[in-house]
């Protein structure tokens, strides 16, 4: 199970790197999105996969007993998702503005416009 997730995360990471190395602005954005998804998935795996055991204290107990799913990585991922959502939204607007004023989607054509 963990192996499959790890494989997925690494494929996403590789795809993200490949995309940001392309010359197109939109592919750069897609690459950043893929990379941040991969990072989120990575935290999820690194926190340990514990299926079907919610982090809830049973009525008969005083504290959590092993095994239970660690809720913290999910909180971290949630934070990271919100942040990357905001950043990607900004990046999208920036790219639109770049396209408006420079009239190109090619990163190489951006050189020397400053």
């Amino acid at each position: 199970m963990e192996f499959m997730y790890a494989l997925l995360a690494s494929v996403l990471f590789a795809a993200g790197i490949y995309s940001i190395l392309r010359r197109s602005l939109v592919k750069l954005l897609i690459g950043i999105i893929l990379l941040s998804q991969s990072a989120n998935l990575y935290i999820f795996i690194a926190g340990g996969l514990t299926p079907a055991s919610p982090p809830l204290i049973q009525e008969s107990n005083q504290a959590l007993i092993q095994p239970y799913a660690d809720p913290l990585p999910q909180a971290l991922i949630l934070t990271a998702i919100v942040i990357s959502f905001g950043v990607v939204a900004f990046f999208l607007v920036l790219l639109k503005r770049v396209y408006q004023v420079v009239q190109t989607d090619d990163l190489d054509d951006l050189r020397g416009t400053d």
């Binding site: 940001i20 950043i32 990379l35 991969s38 935290i43 990585p73 971290l76 951006l110 416009t113 400053d114």
Partner: peptide, 25 residues
């Protein structure tokens, strides 16, 4: 004039944040 630098600044800094996040994970 601001566009070229901004694209570089934003994408490189986002990339570095992603690496940082993976490291923290």
């Amino acid at each position: 004039s601001q566009m070229e630098g901004a694209v570089k600044y934003v994408s490189l800094n986002l990339f570095s944040s992603i690496l940082f996040l993976v490291g923290a994970g």
